[in-house]
Amino acid sequence: MQRGKVKWFNNEKGYGFIEVEGGSDVFVHFTAIQGEGFKTLEEGQEVSFEIVQGNRGPQAANVVKL
């Protein structure tokens, strides 16, 4: 599992990016966020996640808020 901080997340569009220290930013879609109810992330929030290869490159999967 990787760890990072949410760079930004757009609730209306349902996606954003996670900053990884020493690495490239990783795309995150709301469907990758674990948990119940409305799935969103806050700027600066710490998360753990896996990186998978999506249609447009690397993206976050199994995102857990820390």
Rank of each mutant, 00 (worst) to 15 (best):
Q53D: 14
M1C: 05
F38E: 06
L66I: 08
L66K: 09
G22P: 15
T40Q: 09
F17N: 04
N62I: 02
E36H: 08
K5S: 10
I33D: 02
F49A: 03
V64R: 12
F30M: 04
Q2G: 09
K13M: 11
V63H: 01
E19R: 13
K5H: 13
F17A: 04
L66G: 13
A61I: 14
G57K: 06
E12A: 15
V6C: 07
Y15K: 03
M1S: 08
N11F: 08
A32D: 05
R3V: 11
T40V: 09
V63K: 01
V52A: 15
A61N: 07
L41P: 02
V52Y: 09
I18G: 00
A60T: 01
F27G: 03
E21Q: 12
S48Y: 14
K65D: 11
Q2M: 15
F38R: 09
G35Y: 07
G22V: 11
G23D: 15
L66R: 11
V26S: 03
K5I: 09
I33H: 02
N11Y: 05
G54N: 05
G14V: 01
F49R: 00
G16T: 00
Q53W: 13
I51W: 09
Q53A: 13
V47Y: 02
F17H: 04
V64P: 01
R56F: 04
S48T: 13
Q2P: 03
G37K: 07
A61T: 07
E12D: 11
F9T: 02
E12Q: 14
F27E: 03
Q34S: 12
Y15V: 04
A32W: 02
K39Y: 04
K7W: 01
K5T: 13
K39A: 11
F17G: 03
R3F: 12
M1G: 07
E19N: 12
K13P: 04
G22D: 10
G14M: 03
Q45K: 08
G54D: 07
N10W: 05
K65T: 12
I18M: 03
R56Y: 04
S48W: 07
Q2C: 15
G54L: 05
V64A: 10
Q59E: 05
A61L: 07
L41K: 01
G57T: 06
E12L: 14
E36Q: 14
V20I: 11
E50W: 11
A60Y: 00
V20M: 11
Q59P: 01
V20N: 10
E36R: 13
I51Q: 13
N55K: 14
E43W: 08
E12P: 15
G57V: 03
G16S: 00
H29N: 03
I33S: 02
F30A: 09
I18F: 02
G4K: 01
F17S: 04
F9E: 01
G22C: 14
E21W: 09
G54H: 15
Q34E: 09
Q59H: 11
G44R: 11
E43F: 12
A32H: 05
V6K: 00
E12R: 15
Q45T: 09
G37Y: 06
V63S: 01
V6Q: 01
G22E: 11
N11V: 09
E42T: 12
Q2T: 15
T40W: 06
N11D: 15
L41Y: 02
G37V: 06
V52P: 01
G14A: 04
Q53P: 06
N11E: 10
N10H: 15
M1V: 09
Q45N: 12
K13C: 07
P58G: 06
N55T: 03
G4T: 01
R56P: 07
H29D: 03
E43L: 11
G14R: 07
I33Q: 02
T31G: 06
V63R: 01
R56Q: 08
E46P: 10
A32V: 05
E42D: 13
V26C: 08
G44K: 09
F38S: 07
A61C: 10
Q59R: 15
G23M: 13
D25I: 03
